[in-house]
Simulated scan of single mutants.
Amino acid sequence: MASAAHRPVVGIIGNRGLLNDHYPIHEGGQMNSCAVARVSDCIPLLIPADPEMVAVEELMEVCDGFLFTGGRPNIHPEEYGEEPTEKHGAFDRARDAITLPLVRACVERGQPFFGICRGFQEVNVAMGGTLHPEIRELPGRMNHRMPPEGTLEESFALRHKVHLEPGGRFAQLFGADEVLTNTLHGQGICQPGPRIVIEGRAEDGTPEAIYVKDAPGFTMAVQWHPEWNAAQDPVSRPLFEAFGNAVRDWAAAKRS
């Protein structure tokens, strides 16, 4: 691990929660912080995603890169021109108000980010795409949701293959055209944004790996959860390493 004084800062987008079903908190999974600290070799900084507390411009100055994490609340469908239904689940409009403009600002500026699960969906919506509220109800699709019961290890178990575009960014990063991943999501991409490039799909056709076309910085995002077992998993580790390298390059350029 590099000296803490020289490690760049990755802002980890947090979620709202309740401690003991009573006390309001901002929270983030420890596995996200561990992946950023131990694999990306950056300083993890949990961000309270609320426009009443932070502004996009402030975050971009404080942080060198961003991790858009998963989260139980979904993006409000009004953000992509649809009306909410019961299938859309719970929402976090405060997070929407930070993450969507932050994605667009990072794309424009070339500041690196990495999207995971909800973060993957945020990248698509921020770039003009739409979402399916419930993937498992579509003809021919599998149930991508987390198993209702089981241990943490069982919930994050590798469950399906992702087929990658041969010679694409993800295939080059993994050194393979097919990888095995976990799956813990209910929603997914319906229409990709105009600049969204889909390079990976599950066996049922569900988009799983994307980036933003012609963006000057790192904009990779995946629908699965690579933060689980990131240091040992052969698919997760290169993603977080590549993200860390991009953040270091950004930080170095900012200092020069």
Rank of each mutant, 00 (worst) to 15 (best):
L19K: 10
E57T: 12
P207I: 05
H132A: 07
A215W: 07
A2N: 15
E122V: 08
A157T: 11
M127R: 15
R16Y: 14
P8S: 08
R104K: 14
M60G: 04
L184K: 03
E178K: 12
G65I: 08
V36I: 13
P234D: 09
H185I: 00
A90P: 11
A215T: 04
G128F: 05
L18N: 04
H160K: 02
L138S: 06
A55K: 13
R16E: 15
P192M: 10
R104P: 00
L152H: 14
F113S: 08
E122T: 10
N245G: 09
H6K: 13
K254S: 11
R118Q: 11
V123M: 02
C63W: 07
G29Y: 14
P148A: 12
D204C: 05
A5F: 11
V56L: 05
I12M: 03
E52M: 08
E57S: 15
E79C: 13
R201H: 05
P24W: 03
E134M: 11
R7Q: 11
E122Q: 10
G200P: 05
S236N: 09
G71E: 04
D50C: 12
H76N: 11
E108T: 13
T206Y: 06
I43V: 12
N15R: 10
P139L: 05
I13Q: 08
I75P: 00
G193A: 05
N74R: 07
H225L: 01
L131A: 04
L18Q: 03
E134C: 10
E52K: 10
H144M: 05
H163C: 10
A126N: 07
F114T: 06
L180R: 08
F120L: 04
N15F: 06
C190R: 15
M146Y: 01
E122C: 09
E86H: 13
G14A: 02
V179T: 09
R16F: 11
N15Y: 01
M146I: 13
P207K: 00
D64T: 08
P207N: 13
V9L: 09
G11M: 09
E58A: 11
P84Y: 07
N15E: 09
A231P: 10
A171V: 00
P139Q: 08
V9R: 03
